[in-house]
Design a protein around this nucleic acid. Sequence first.
RNA 1: GGGAGUUUAGCUCAGCUGGUUCAGAGCAUCUGCCUUACAAGCAGAGGGUCACUGGUUCGAACCCAGUAACUCCCA
Length: 890
Amino acid sequence: MSISKTYQPKQAEDKWYSYWMEQGFFRSVPDEREPYTIVMPPPNVTGVLHMGHMLNNTIQDVLIRRARMQGKNACWVPGTDHASIATEAKVVAMLKEKGINKKDLTREEFLSYAWEWKEKYGGIILEQLKKLGASCDWERTRFTMEPDLSEAVIDTFIHLYKKGLIYRGVRMVNWDPQGKTAVSDEEVIRREVNQKLYYINYKIVGVEGHLTIATTRPETIMADAAICINPNDERYFHLHGKKVLIPLINREIPVILDEYVTMDFGTGCLKVTPAHDLNDYELGIKHNLPVIDILNDDGTLNEKAVILIGEDRFAARKKIAVMLEEAGALEKVEDYKSQIGFSERTNAVIEPKLSMQWFCKMDEMAKPALDYVLNGDIKLIPEKFTNTYKYWMENVKDWCISRQLWWGQQIPAWYLPNRQYVVAKTVEEALEEAKSLKLKAESANTMNYELLTINDLKQEEDVVDTWFSSWLWPISVFDGFKNPDNADINYYYPTNDLITAPEILFFWVARMIMAGHEFRGALPFKNVYLTGIVRDKLGRKMSKSLGNSPDALELIEKYGADGVRYGMLKSSPAGNDLMFDEDHCKQGSAFVNKIWNAFNLIKGWEIDESLSSINKVSIDWFSGRFNQVLIDIDGQFKQYRLSEALMSVYKLVFDDYCSWYLEMVKPPYQPFVEKQKIDKESYLATLAFFENLLRVLHPFVPFITEELWHDDLFGPRAEKDCCIVANLPAIGEIDTQLLTAVENVKQLVTEVRNVRNSKQISPKDKLPLAIKTNSGIDYPLFEAIITKLANLEAVEYTGVKINGANAFLVGTDEFFIALADNIDVDAERERLLAELEYLQGFLKSVNAKLQNERFVQNAKPEIVENEQKKKADAETKIAIIEDSLSALAK
RNA sequence: GGGAGUUUAGCUCAGCUGGUUCAGAGCAUCUGCCUUACAAGCAGAGGGUCACUGGUUCGAACCCAGUAACUCCCA
């Protein structure tokens, strides 16, 4: 294979991804190996790849690839989420463009459009993940609304209903009067708006006088159920137990007491309107107040308002202000700023509205789910999220699981003509159930249950919340509901790691843990790695509306998948937001190119059997260094410090292998030969090291490593002999003494280069070096290396200082470079004096510690020992420098 | 309003049980090199009141209290 000067990612990526697929390397079936399982957080089926997905899936792929190379049976299950709200919104928008209004369609018609849409756009995102190199078992791809998974949703709904955990209840929802639909909290955009605060007088019944309330919504006074004051408010003691009249309609309402009211906001009197404000609603429940809903679905006032019937809420607000003024009930109007919710879709002002919804009781299920995390069976990474999780689980609220949408699993409840309902899997079962209701029927009930037919039953229109299907994901992808004892689920469940974003810790992660316990009696995963939010350089969340998110596929096009993976991982410690900067990808592709070029160097070599081995020290050193880094990486992976692990690999390749090892062993340039001759042992060792580096690199940069793995240089490879399934190198022996010695040697080489740099001496000029060793380091052993890397002409060992030479210290060893021009004596003295001063100060502080009895008594022995060593070192160095200074004086 | 978290070099982050006399990395910056693998490179260098104020300790970036700024979650 001829090798080009720079690496061309594109061909390699397509080629190897298909090859991996053909060979079935991503496929996992249960066997006798230890399983390692990740279920992918299913992206929205009609979504496109964004930076959050890139980060998330890069992390998953690194973990999966590493596990595979550790000999585990690695299984990564991909899939998509039907995302009812987002998808339905997209379909509605698409229909609108075609001139079709959702309201004019039947449910069946709408759903067929939606499925068509899903078939067309669904799965694009999974195709995009392939470009990133995601090694998922694609044969296991699931969709949250496919028949089996939907059936699981229905079955679990019925299960929970029978257990008494699902009930119907009234709840305040975000109502969009323009779209005439409830929208989720996530779809409400809060904006600060200039408003008016109206001060309105209410007459007190039975006595002279009035009280004044402040409100931004005077049109809702007709829905008032009470006036609330703080019981501690001295201004209003006289109102306790009184009643007041609502202006204009003169309905009598009570004054109630509750500490909920803030005394210093407004007038201290709060109008309580349970039908049109969430807080008021809760206050109403507490005080048993009636709920008077004066608004129609389209935001106009209904007959309960008594006045202004049929007017729009905003028109009514203006009119009522005038009417109040005319009635003398308007005290004053002030400007006021506050947050108002707008519908993301229609931009209409959201109206809090009471509606009947389905709920799932949470407290019973939350308890065991909290325990899994608190007792460490499930680890949250980083740990700090445990607190948040605990707080939420201890204050869990019931889950509103119904959504007023069509795209999703329709709630399996059927209403009888008298609004009684039954919960059953099919309409036939529902009918049976309905007929049996007779027994429980009250005597006043005139309905004849015996005569009910299927046509009398009407299924609940609402669907369940999307999370009500995704909370089953780790079980349902392995068919754990339909076949609870099948081989897959027994083998893969509980899964190992879940990689997801912290903002869905409650929505999704907590509920999966609950579902795992409820439906399988076991946790769904052992570790939860929470990634950060991907932000731009300015710290803003990446979003489509800001347009600050780079196109994921363009990035891959530009930097190669390996480069982008590097860029995503570079600065993404768990749980911290990732300030994404394209520069990281650039660095990634530079790194990939560096690997390519290192290989290019080796390709230019040829074994010459006649040469004897001269690089034993270098080979031993790198081997030890490699093993040392393997240990580091292992530890970093155990703690999920992926960016640190990547940095360790980066430095191992860039610094240790390329900058030091290859420079040590590379044969001197031989002119007039096509390939540089090298001894056999060095060549084989270097190539073996490179292959091991490929293994360590593979989880991070899979494509370049697979490409090089198959180069002729490694000889012919069997069909299945691929980097992706190679074993990670085992950790071998480490000669610590050798490693320490080489650290000194490296420092020595750096010092020589420094002298060269500061004296402006060309790297081509050879320098003389004299060594006066005071440590036990065997410099002759490293002489060849030092000579080569520092470009020396000769190395001399001396017992005495060399006057007039450039001198420096490494540890306690002294080195001299004698140059033709004498050194600047004054400058040298100054340098030495500065160093002496530093060392004396250092020694002083060390001595202070050692003379401090409390330190010697309290500190750990090894720390005291270390201080003593520091002291000895400093004393030696001081002696050397004092010597040098006196020599300089001569 | 309640809760959680963050604050260390220009940027992004390490600093794991409190223990070097000035705290590390990568990138960026500066200087010098087109040195036969790589200028997407090589060799060097500079850069910090660890947000602030107190306290605990022989010893604090680290523990405690308070202050400030920012971020997120729940309402």
